[in-house]
Amino acid sequence: MPDTEIPPKGPAAPPSGRSPAARPRRDTRGTAARIRTAARRLFVEKGYEATSMDAVAAAAPVSKRTLYQHFPGKAELFGAVIDEAWSHLTRSPLLPQDTSGDPRAVLRAYVGRLAEHWDRPDVIPLLRLVIAEAPRFPELSQAYFAAGKEPAVKGLSAYLGALAAAGWLKPGRDPQLAAAQFLGAIKEPLFWPRVLGVPAAFDAAEAVERAIDAVLGPA
């Protein structure tokens, strides 16, 4: 059965008649980070359905009231875990804002950053979890898409749009479709074998160059 725990009632009114809004809660002790770490471990080890908010509170360890103050439900907690797993990739500029550099070198470096992301110990296990449990819990795939995949595609689309405006792409080429096709040409030979736990069948450097060729034309 899905986690159906009822969040505890909110904290009592603060003394001296001050409203909660007058004293915004600050995570000065790193409590939210500790909760996310505990939740990520439990999600990966036990799965989404089998991980209860009680178990997260015990593993953090925090009170249930503290847990729900930071994360109102399990779906929000899972979204925060996904967001953190992608944050090093989505919250730092992966691509330049202009087209002054060599586009081929820029795209090679971009793929290098993607590969570093795939190497992180929590990324592929969390994706496997999403694939396994999303049919019963569609909020998992929604969280994964919103926190990771969508920002990554948008960033690449923006860069390819700038290249198109500068004449690097073929006239009429849709930058968003080009971004999706580029990522597909990279992930099919290099990423999905990792997810499935099988050896890659293609040379990584060759696969990257052919993907770049498909976007920019042969060097």
Results as ranks from 00 to 15, higher is better:
182 F>I: 02
111 V>L: 01
187 K>G: 12
156 L>P: 15
195 V>H: 02
130 V>E: 02
121 P>V: 01
125 P>V: 04
152 A>I: 09
175 P>Q: 00
154 K>R: 14
139 E>G: 15
103 P>C: 11
163 L>M: 12
147 A>Q: 13
143 A>L: 12
137 F>N: 05
148 G>M: 11
126 L>G: 02
185 A>N: 03
192 W>M: 12
107 L>M: 11
201 A>R: 14
163 L>E: 03
184 G>H: 03
117 H>Q: 13
146 A>S: 14
151 P>M: 08
138 P>V: 14
124 I>L: 06
189 P>E: 02
113 R>I: 05
140 L>V: 10
165 A>Q: 10
177 L>N: 03
163 L>A: 08
148 G>Y: 09
202 F>V: 09
192 W>N: 07
163 L>H: 07
175 P>W: 02
111 V>S: 05
137 F>E: 07
119 D>I: 03
181 Q>M: 00
127 L>V: 10
170 K>A: 15
164 A>K: 12
185 A>Q: 02
148 G>H: 10
118 W>F: 13
143 A>V: 14
173 R>F: 10
202 F>E: 07
131 I>G: 00
184 G>N: 06
159 Y>I: 11
147 A>E: 14
168 W>V: 04
156 L>E: 08
181 Q>E: 05
191 F>S: 00
191 F>H: 08
156 L>A: 12
137 F>C: 04
111 V>T: 07
197 G>D: 14
115 A>N: 06
153 V>Q: 15
133 E>P: 08
191 F>V: 14
133 E>T: 08
125 P>R: 01
193 P>M: 04
136 R>D: 10
139 E>M: 06
113 R>A: 09
187 K>C: 12
166 A>I: 08
160 L>R: 13
195 V>T: 04
128 R>Y: 02
162 A>R: 15
122 D>R: 01
166 A>W: 03
114 L>Y: 06
123 V>A: 05
129 L>I: 04
169 L>E: 08
176 Q>W: 00
111 V>C: 05
129 L>E: 02
111 V>M: 02
105 A>E: 12
111 V>Y: 00
142 Q>M: 15
185 A>F: 04
194 R>Q: 14
103 P>H: 05
163 L>P: 10
145 F>G: 08
170 K>F: 08
154 K>T: 15
114 L>V: 07
105 A>M: 12
151 P>H: 06
136 R>F: 07
113 R>K: 11
181 Q>R: 00
165 A>D: 14
140 L>N: 07
151 P>T: 04
166 A>P: 09
